[in-house]
Structure formats: C-alpha cells, structure tokens
Design a protein around this nucleic acid. Structure first.
Length: 820
RNA sequence: GCCGGGGUGGCGAAACUGGCAGACGCACAGGACUUAAAAUCCUGAGACGCGCAAGCGUCGUGCGGGUUCGAUUCCCGCCCCCGGCACCA
C-alpha cells in the first residue's frame, strides 16, 4: 500500500507543471476564454496565509474552468514600486531595486510551493522599465487629451513619507500607509481628470451585477453626486458677487447669512478692507490650521466671525451678513454657503451660537411658507421653479456637484514611474516624445529621506534638451502615484511582452474584460475606481471595446489569528511554508477553502488544518484500497440496470455530489460547501467499501460491477477535488492509470437519471409539528401519499378523535395535516 | 446619524424557491485494532424530561409581535456585533 507523503507529491507535480508549461496559454478562438485574476501583490517580502487565501480562491476557480474546457488566463505579477522599499533604503542603504527583486523572488517561491496555477510566462513587475514605460506612454496620451494636467493646489502632505497623498489615501486624517497625521502644503501637482468620468462611473456601477453591493455603495458614496443649484449673491457696495452651491434652493427665502470657507479667495480681500487686517487674518489662520480631519468630521466646534460685509439675498432683497465659518469646506462646491438656520442642523447650531436670525420657510407638510410667490408650493416643486427663476434672472443655474476630486498623482519620491515631462523656459511644459521613452530611473546610491524629490538631486537626470527647441530644459522630477501602475496591469497581462505598445488591442479584445477578479475589500474605492477610470481612458483612445474591466468581483475576507489581523508587528503571522512542511500544500489549500465562504473573515485554526490533512489522507487510502480491483476490472461501461441496491446508492451519491459541487464552486462561489459535499461522498465510499469487504457480505461481495462503481466515485472525486488539492489528485489520477495527467481530464458530467432517488423519506406534520416519516417512491401521487401519511402510527396518535381540516402536500418534500 | 453585512450547538459552519434546523468539519466521549500508545476504522452527541429499550414529548436559529397548514427564511418593531461613510451645504 502506498503511503501518503504530500511533500513529495508537491515537489513532483510542481516540477511537472513547470516542465510542461502547463498553465501557459495563447489566444484560441475555438475555445471559450476565461480570465481569472487575483489582485497582484506588493512584494513586502513574505506572504502570510491571509494573503495566500486570495490566490487559492483564484486557483480553485482557474483549475475548475480549465477542467470545464475554458481557455484560462491566470497570470500573476508584482505591484513593485512604492514607499516601503524606499523607506527601507533610507534606513539600511539597500537599493529599492535590490530589495524589491529579492522579495519578489522569495514570494514567487512561496506561491509556487502552493502550486498556484499561474502562467508565469506573463509575470510582470511594475518597477521594471518594460512596464513603467507604458505608464509614461499613457501619461503623454492623457496629457494630449487634457486628461492629465498641472495646477498649483493645496495638497495632503505626509511629513513622514515626504509625499503628497490623494484624498483617497488619507484615512481618518492620517496617511493610509504609515498612519502619520497629514498636513497641508501648496505645490504644483499633476492631476488625472477622473471627474470627467464621474457621472459615467456612477451610472455604470448600476450594471455591475456581479460586484458585491457593499463595494458599489462605497463607490457611490465616494463619487458623491448631488443635484442642486449655484446661486450668486451680490456683495453690498461692490460689483463682485459670492456664488454658493445648494441642494435646497427652495429654502432661499430663509437664507439669513452667508458663510465663506477660511480658504475662500474673498477672505483675504475682505481682511484688507477691514479695520484690523491683522486681527482678521489671525482668526482666519487659526481656522485654516485647525486639524483637517477634525474639520472634515465635525469634531471641531463650529466657529466663525463676521467680516463686516453684506450680500443681498436676491429673493428677499434683504442684506445678509457675510461670516467666515470654520465648518465650510473650501474644496466642495464653491467654498461658500448660504446659511438657512431653520432648515439645516449645522446652520442652526451656528446661528444659535451667534444670535443670527432663524426664519422658517417650510412647514411640516414640506410646503413653502413666507416665500413670496412660492408660498404654498410643495418643496420638491419649488426647487425646480426657483432654479428656473434664478436662471431667467441670470443669477444662478441648476448644476451637479461631485465629491470625487481629480486624482493628484505627483509624488516627491524616487521609487516610482518618472513623470515624462520636460519644463522648457521657451516652450513651457513639453511631453517626452515616444521615441525617448522610457524615462528610466537614474541609479541613486544614497537615500537620505530629506528634501523633496530625490530625482532633483541627479543633474544628469534633470538637465535635458527641450524636445521642441533643443534648448536647455529641466526634467520633471516627481514620480507617479503607484496606483497608476495597478490601474491597468490586467491589460498588460493579455500581452505582457509587447515592446511596441502597452498591449495589442486584439489580444485584449480576446481576453478582457477579466471574468473573475478577487482581492481584498480594502481596495473597494482606490484601486477599483482608478481601474474603471483607466478602462474608460483606453476606451476613449480606441484601444478597447468594453468600459468595465472586471465582470465579477469577489472580495475575500481576512484571516485572523487570535482575533486580530495578521501582521509582523503583532507577531501573529501564520507562515504558509511551515504549514506546507508539516501537512503539504494541498491540506493548507483545502483548509483555507473549507473553513468558511470566501467573503467571510476566518479565524486561523491549526486543528482545522490538521482535519483537512486527515481528509486528504482518507481520500488517498480510500482510492488506494480499490486501485488493484479497479485496474483489474477494466474500463467498460456500467450496466446500471443490473446493479445492486448498494451500488445504485453509491452512484446516486456520486452524481448528486457532481451537481452540488459544480453549483457551489461555479455559481455560488461557496467553496466550503463544495468541500463538505465531497467529504460526504468519501464517507459514503467508505461505507460501500466496508460493505463490500465485510465477511458476511453476500450479494455485494459477489457483484462484479462494484469496482466499476467505486471507480466512478473515486475518479469523479479526484477530478472535483483537484482544484483544491491538485498535487494529491494528480498522483491519484496517475495511480488510476491516466498517463496524460489531469490536464487531459474534464469536469464530470451530471446524470440526472442516476442521481434520482428511488425512494424518499417524507416528513409528516400534524398542526405544524413533525409527527412521523413515511417512505414513498418519488413519483407517488398525492392521494396515495396522503393515505400513507395518515396511516403512520404516530400520526394516527395525533389525529385520533379529531377532524382533519386540510392536508397540504409539498411534492416530494412534506405532508402537512391540519386537525381540529 | 446614514449605508451595507451579520447574530444558528462547546467551536468553524450548513440549510439552494417558505417545507425534517444543526449537513460537513473541529473539539469531545465510547468501541474495534494494538502488549501499549499513536495512527486508523466504527459509533454517539442541540437542551431538558419520560422510558430497560426501539422510542415519545417539550423547548430551541438575538428579543417581541405578525402573515402562513408550516418561518433560520417573508413583514412590522426593537437589541447587539462587524465593516464603510459621515459638517459634502
């Protein structure tokens, strides 16, 4: 009897897959394609089981789809630029490229030891020029189209990382990566005009039916569309006016004061015209320096002061004092707000504090009062009517506001894609022409972490000729946000080695969109919204036909250890390699899939892993026990009609398991119940084996067809279990005489006739309580079933002496008797 | 506050369209095998009560109500946990 030594099998079959290039694919129009992708990895050094769960999910889906006859693209790569490598270089002097490539090599080994079926031939790393040159290529296309532009702006600055952060990268006022409190800074920055697609990104989200509702909601909130109107209020004693954005123009008759954000452009001129400019600006400065996160979340108390100036309410013609208020946000709307104390909680709080007039203009029935011509009009109608009047009078117009901001991509760091732009004193900002791409990162040997862009200190890099006039010019020294890299890598996988273009549109047309994408929910807004944006850019460049890059999205849950997320600093990391050493990679893969549905968080359990190992060993023994008889009995078809009852029972279980497992993995992505179903089949196989080999067996023991029925069960199991435990199953498949490996196998076909139950046990309820069970043929007619149910002794005990009011029959499921 | 997801044995979970609640596994207990142990194989198990026993009964899916022959599932109200968003005018 062969012993189960999973570590040997891991080695043997991983070598086999590498030697046969088993997972490399090319476009094949004769086959349906399937593009299965897991979010690529930041090469931090070591993958723990939390990371690895995601790759196993994708691998199970990939291997299933291959068995189902799909041409499966399942690639992997590295999100290899980024701050940790650069920070490490500052600390220990190792060049980011050296550490990054070393980390990649180690993590790749970890994934290979897990037997993940990647097409390694398409592996990419974003830190290599053959990848990032296409970031640069795309940047210049976006510049030409006006989708990349430059402006001076107040930006989020992380004092620890020495870089700018996009709003999305600021979490609770702190840097998303290092947790340092973010400050504000004024810098010239490059932006991507994602707001150009704001409406489309929002509306198209409705069509993403195979995305988790949670992610779509988060994206909708992030885009934050709101319909309203802009209205201009004339400043008293001045030609200028102040424009506000409001969603409630119907409350304008109740607007009794005006508020400006401390950053509003008019604030400084009002200060100059005030009696005490210095005192005025001191108050403004205090507001501006108030903790940004506090201002954003409302933790800072509402404060303000009167500027001494007034605007005229264009509807009431009453003067409204202009205040500076710390809770008005400069970056949303126009940075100015009309104060309606009666109908806005914040304004009421402010007005009460400073004794400003509170004038109700809408009653409890949502009808306008004290609103001139509009008195008596329902609020919803009034919004339209008043907007129209504002438009006619030329003092305002209906408009749509988004919370989504353009994406600031400039980073003052070394380890990123150089922005391919040249500043010429004659020609201004000039893109680097395509033939000069890539603009490669110069070798820097010393990382100080001080000052601004490290690239600015490399004269050979900075000093260039202007591509237009040939005169001396300066290269842009900022690099791109690494989210640029990850916004289109899935297209590069479709044509990973193209040195003429980012990808061949024909190849992307074959493989994309991605059919199944899985990764952490922490990317619900950042990466996933940027990728949707880039898909639209490529679409508008005429390079792709679709606009949504990911058809089906699965957000996998985290793996916890001792109730906490695994992390090096907490010291609770479970290392896949040590688990593989102990139980083999298949046990780890199976356990991670069995413990819970993929979306759910799970708590790591060593004994659970051991249980999965035991199950695989049980499958191994179960198959090994039958091997000789199966090989001796030959391959002929099963004569179903002449089988014993036990044989028919095992076949039924086999086919029912095919049905369940297929639906569970393919349709529901419930890997855990698929594994349970296969465990049940194994239990049933053992019972069958016992019966067959027991000394007192008669009919079963004599049956010549038993090995064939066992073979069907075992081979079905091998194939269905192979996406989860590929090494073990390859070996068993070979032991069962298949020389061509599982690559030549196909997913088992479900036979409804074989799976059909011969008799059913049907529960009988009396007045809603279970009182008995009757055994009947599945096609028994209602009358006969009713008679059978009423004849059951325990049912009779509960119906005796009572009147039967009603009998409800749920075909094949239940009989319900109502008595009184 | 708003949005989304949850609450089921000692534990992880399952129950697909309203139809036997707790499949499958972990941990546990008993038996077989063994000189013994491990491993393996088999069996048991929601709680409580009655019974020598097969079995029978009552309760049971966060709490309270409702619809229904029948509710973990649908409806109304409430409590708690997790995640996201939150002064966005």
């Amino acid at each position: 009897m062969a012993e189960y030594h999973p570590q040997d099998l891991d080695k043997k079959w991983q070598q086999h897959w590498a030697d046969t290039q088993a997972f490399e694919v090319t476009e094949d129009h004769a086959k349906p394609k399937f593009y299965c992708l897991e979010m690529f990895a930041y090469p931090s050094g070591h993958a723990h089981v939390g990371h690895v769960r995601n790759y196993i999910i994708g691998d199970v889906v990939s291997r299933l789809k291959r068995l189902q006859g799909f041409n499966v693209l399942h690639p992997f790569g590295w999100d290899a630029f980024g701050l940790p490598a650069e920070n490490a270089a500052i600390k220990n002097g190792i060049h980011p490229e050296t550490s990054t490539l070393g980390n990649i090599a180690h993590m790749k080994g970890q994934l290979q030891r897990l037997g993940i079926s990647y097409a390694w031939g398409r592996e990419l790393a974003t830190c290599l020029p053959n990848y990032y040159r296409w970031n640069q290529w795309l940047f210049t296309r976006m510049f030409e189209k006006g989708l990349a532009y430059r402006r001076r702006s107040t930006v989020n600055w992380c004092p620890s990382c020495h870089t700018v952060l996009a709003n999305e990268q600021v979490v609770d006022g702190a840097c998303w990566r290092c947790g340092t409190q973010v400050t504000q800074k004024d810098l010239e920055q490059w932006f991507f005009k994602i707001t150009h697609y704001a409406d489309d990104l929002l509306h198209a989200a409705e069509g993403l039916s195979k995305w988790p509702e949670k992610v779509l909601t988060m994206q909708r909130n992030w885009i934050g569309r709101s319909e309203g109107a802009k209205v201009r209020f004339a400043i008293q004693g001045d030609d200028a006016s102040i424009e506000v954005f409001t969603t409630r123009i119907d409350t304008i008759y109740g607007a009794t004061f005006m508020m400006l954000a401390p950053e509003h452009a008019l604030v400084t001129s009002f200060a100059k015209e005030s009696q005490d400019e210095k005192a005025f600006m001191e108050k403004v400065q205090r507001f501006r320096s108030q903790d940004r996160s506090g201002r954003l979340t409302g933790e800072v108390e509402k404060e303000g002061f009167f500027t001494g100036r007034f605007v005229i309410n264009p509807f009431t013609n009453q003067p409204m004092p202009i205040w500076v208020a710390n809770y008005v946000l400069a970056e949303y709307g126009t940075g100015a707000v009309m104060g309606v104390a009666a109908h806005d909680d914040r304004d009421r709080e402010f007005a009460t504090k400073y004794d400003l007039p509170i004038v109700p203009v809408i009653n409890d029935d949502e009808v306008l009062i004290e609103s001139g011509l509009y008195t008596g009009m329902p609020a919803a109608e009034a919004i339209k009517a008043i907007t129209e009047e504002a438009e006619e009078r030329g003092i305002g117009e209906g408009t749509v506001q988004f919370r989504l901001k353009d994406w600031g991509i400039s980073r003052q760091r070394y380890w990123g894609t150089p922005i391919p732009m040249i500043h010429c004193p004659v020609d201004g900002v000039v893109p680097v022409p395509d033939y000069q791409l890539p603009v490669t990162l110069p070798m820097i040997t010393e990382f100080t972490g001080r000052g601004d862009s490290p690239l600015a200190s490399v004269p050979e890099f900075v000093n260039v000729k202007c591509p237009k006039c040939g005169g001396p010019a300066r290269r842009e020294t900022d690099t791109m946000d690494t989210f640029v890299d990850s916004s289109w890598y899935f297209y590069r996988f479709a044509d990973a080695h193209n040195d003429q273009m980012p990808f061949d549109p024909k190849k992307v047309a074959y493989w994309c969109p991605v059919d199944f994408y899985s990764g952490g929910v922490e990317h619900a807004i950042l990466h996933l919204i940027y990728s949707r944006f880039f898909a639209r850019v490529f679409h508008d460049l005429g390079m792709i036909d679709h606009v949504e890059p990911f058809t089906h999205l699965l957000t996998q849950g985290m793996v916890l250890k001792d109730g906490a997320v695994m992390s090096k600093s907490k010291g609770n990391v479970v290392d896949p390699d040590s688990m593989i050493q102990k139980y083999g990679s298949d046990a780890l893969r199976l356990y991670v899939m069995f413990v819970a549905p993929p979306e759910k968080e799970v708590e790591w359990s060593d004994s659970g892993l051991e249980g999965s190992f035991r199950f695989l060993a049980r499958v191994w023994r179960g198959a090994d026990q039958w091997r000789e008889q199966v090989l001796a009995s030959g391959a002929g078809p099963i004569d179903h009609a002449s089988l014993t009852a036990a044989e028919r029972g095992l076949r039924r279980k086999t086919h029912d398991t095919i049905r369940r497992v297929t639906a569970d993995i393919d349709v529901r992505q419930q890997m855990n119940t698929a594994v349970s179903a296969m465990m049940e089949l194994v239990n049933e196989l053992y019972a069958f084996t016992d019966r067959f080999s027991a000394a007192n067996a008669t009919e079963d023991k004599r049956s010549a067809q038993a090995p064939k029925v066992a073979r069907e069960a075992i081979e079905t199991l091998i194939v269905m279990l192979s996406p989860f435990a590929p090494h073990t199953m390859e070996e068993l498949w070979q032991m069962y005489g298949h020389a061509d490996g599982l690559a030549g196998a196909s997913w088992p076909a479900f036979d409804a006739i074989v799976a059909k139950a011969e008799e059913l046990e049907i529960p009988v309820q009396v007045n809603g309580k279970l009182r008995g069970r009757v055994v009947a043929a599945p096609d028994i007619d209602d009358q006969a079933l009713e008679a059978l149910a009423l004849a059951d002794p325990n049912v009779q005990a509960h119906t005796a002496g009572k009147t039967i009011r009603k009998v409800v029959i749920a075909k094949g499921r239940l009989v319900s008797v109502v008595v009184a």
